[in-house]
């Protein structure tokens, strides 16, 4: 009953109108304590001076942001030239996360469609089956994926046994393994919102389109996808954002050879570098880029949504 069901003018809204502030208070407090405060703390930290071996000195400094964009050579005294290291790490992570999102979409959309078109009685069972593996801790699932993909693991053994390949393929410690890990970790976040959207889809619309001589491809492209688009976009965001910050899959499946955003930030706080302001600055830059992306999405949604709710 989410999303489109809460159209303005329903009686329930009026009933609780006066209590609104009070009813919203717990949510606001939770948000303020658990989300805003840590983010503000990071914002403040990113403008402080770093302390040797971790920690901060309470002196205002731009050094963290300068380090992100400014390359001063190995000894830190060259004139400033553009620093590509961190931008490349960000770009690599965004590319990786984007690819994982696309992969999840390609597999997740048909899966969600399949579940939503089963008889109503068995749908909860399918959803349940999708979520079962996710009752296990992410770390354990990622380690299991290592076992699956390694040179003498089940996947290679099966492929050699069936003579599809002669020599085991090197899969572990590659970008491919990271992709598989991200895809596997976040697939349900794609399936569930799309399922919720497709389930609410009125299939008589497809029939009407077919009566008007639309082919199956046209129905999918011009009727189904536009209607369930909010679900698809929600799924994409839910997969893309955590993939961007993921460090378990890159560390355990990719061999931690190349920093991803997540591991770069982690290293600043618990690794050898111990540069908290820089870790905070990298987090703020990441947060701002994600926020800009989300705002672009929100803007693009404002008009189409009105048209849809009138049609629904």
């Amino acid at each position: 009953m989410a999303g489109g069901a809460t159209i303005e003018g329903s009686n329930t809204t009026a009933t609780y109108e006066q209590a609104r502030t009070w009813l919203l208070l717990p949510a606001w407090i939770t948000l303020a304590v658990l989300v805003l405060t840590p983010v503000l703390l990071m914002l403040v930290y990113s403008f402080l001076t770093k302390e040797f071996r971790g920690g901060v000195i309470w002196e205002f400094s731009f050094a963290a942001y300068e380090q992100f964009f400014c390359d001063r050579g190995l000894f830190g005294d060259d004139p400033c030239s553009m620093e590509w290291t961190y931008i490349n790490i960000f770009w690599r992570s965004i590319w990786q996360a984007g690819l994982a999102t696309l992969l999840c979409l390609c597999i997740g959309f048909p899966t969600a469609y399949f579940i939503a078109t089963r008889p109503e009685r068995v749908r909860p069972m399918w959803v349940f089956l999708i979520t079962i593996p996710y009752w296990v801790n992410l770390l354990i699932r990622t380690v299991s994926m290592r076992f699956m993909l390694r040179e003498e693991g089940p996947v290679n053994n099966f492929l050699t046994w069936t003579h599809i390949i002669d020599e085991p393929i090197q899969m572990i410690n590659t970008n491919f393994a990271v992709q598989v890990g991200l895809f596997y970790s976040y697939l349900p976040f794609m399936v569930l919102p799309i399922y919720a959207a497709v389930e609410r889809y009125n299939f008589t619309l497809s029939e009407a389109a077919a009566d008007l001589y639309a082919t199956k491809w046209v129905i999918l492209r011009r009727v189904l996808i536009p209607t369930v688009k909010p679900g698809v976009i929600a799924g994409c965001i839910l997969v893309f954002v955590p993939s961007l910050g993921a460090f378990l899959a890159p560390d355990l499946l990719g061999g931690a050879k190349n920093f991803m955003i997540g591991s770069l930030i982690e290293e600043q706080f618990k690794g050898n570098a111990g540069n908290w302001p820089f870790g905070a600055a990298a987090s703020m830059i990441l947060l701002s880029s994600v926020l800009v992306l989300l705002m672009i999405y929100a803007r693009s949604q404002v008009r189409p949504r009105r048209v849809h709710s009138e049609g629904a």
Partner: peptide
């Protein structure tokens, strides 16, 4: 010392970039 450690940190980041 701190100055040398900072160079070490840069070397390490460069290894993993």
């Amino acid at each position: 010392d701190q100055a040398t450690q900072e160079v070490y940190d840069r070397i390490w980041t460069a290894v993993k970039k």
